[in-house]
Design a protein around this nucleic acid. Structure first.
Length: 103
DNA sequence: AGCGTGACGAACT
DNA sequence: TAGTTCGCCACGC
């Protein structure tokens, strides 16, 4: 049973186009909140939903971040690579170019 | 109502 | 440059 907050987060995640990624900060800004922790918590709590491309969310540091799904960050990396996101040694290449901001 | 936890971020040492 | 600390808000106990 997702909370309203998580619902907003998930909705935002589904807006991310294929081959692009977004940051927790961008989501927080989109939701008009400063609690990046809350966003990360919300996303991390329901990684089981296949309808949510949670693997397209990365920290602002340009690294892959974390992943609670099966396979962990390794799977996350693979998924992003399959979508056309270049990753090297756990960090995203051309991060600013790959980054997607909500309109 | 209070405390601890968390897929983060920025500042500090 | 790397490691540590504090802060942010939502959620469960």
């Amino acid at each position: 049973m997702p909370t309203p907050f998580q619902k907003e987060v998930y909705k935002a995640l589904q807006k991310i186009p294929k081959g692009r990624v977004t940051t927790y900060g961008a989501i927080a800004s989109y939701l008009n909140t400063k609690a990046i922790r809350a966003v990360g918590t919300a996303v991390g709590k329901n990684p089981n939903a296949p309808d949510i491309p949670c693997h397209r969310v990365v920290p602002s540091t340009g690294k892959v971040g974390n992943y609670s799904g099966v396979g962990g960050v390794n799977m996350k990396r693979t998924l992003l690579l399959e979508e056309g996101v270049a990753i090297e040694n756990g960090k995203i290449l051309h991060f600013e170019d790959t980054l997607y901001l909500f309109s």
